[in-house]
Amino acid sequence: MTATVSSPPLHAPGVPELSRRRRTRDVLATVMVHVAFAIAMVPLVWILYSVLGHGWHLLLDSTWWTNSQRNINPERAGGGVYHAIFGTLAQALICAVIAVPLAVFTAIYLVEYGTGRLARAVSFTVDILTGIPSIVAGLFIYALWVTTFGLQRVGLAASLSLVLLMVPVVVRSTEEMLKLVPNELREASYALGVPKWKTISRIVLPTALGGIVTGVMLGLARVMGETAPLLILGPYASSINTDLFNGNMATLPTMIRENFGLPDQPAIDRMWASALTLIVLVLLLNIAGRVVARFSGVKK
């Protein structure tokens, strides 16, 4: 625009002012949006406040991170949560090792290859799996592992039940991320004489990597906090057990459960501190996931 063309005055004749009606609506909508936000924040802040307030002092003690609860009675303070952290991380890791490839390959099938009836059936099954209550997943693995095969309730069995819960979450998130990769990139790759599988593995997956990692982290966060199947398949143990194939193995959720409902103050403190530890663990994993996602995939 050149300088000779002056912009019209703000209230030029024929340009109506913002009507009172619209102004009122604007204010109303703004207030409602902010109030809704504030209400949504209340439980979040409240949870963090109570968990931090009740649990933080135990986390400052180094034995909390290095010791187990072996030989420590509910009425006695002391001991740590190492055994439960180990159990939670080990079971989540095994779960991820099984679930992530399964879920990512399923998502690749659904987005890149699947057409027709089979793809619809797979997609429908994933939907059903998403809706399965976690306790049912626990019961299913119990029926398979203990009733059918006659095996013991060990860490691995708990991991397997978590797989059932993690797979649908990761399938759906990965699917969405793969769909976001523009078709133009696939075509560009095909046009260079790159076969389809290589286009997927070297162009499509790296482009979607950030989102896939985020989805995996969300799935991990979900299974790490999952309690119901562990109540069935993962009995609590107060000592360190590093063997996923033998014996009871503590996890943070079962440790919380173990210390819940006891009259003794040390047990109550341990319950809150375990809850805080679980939140911190999930938070750290999320941060790690974001860092990984940032340094790989799409370059900015």
Binding site: P182, E184, S189, L192, V194, R202, V298, K299
Partner: peptide
């Protein structure tokens, strides 16, 4: 070979990797 309507460099790759993509993936 083919060049498309909208420029579509691979977003995960550097300039040189983009150019070398066809050879590398080959």
């Amino acid at each position: 070979g083919m060049v498309f309507q909208r420029p579509n460099p691979f977003p995960t790759m550097s300039i040189s990797d983009n150019v070398a993509a066809g050879l590398k993936l080959g």
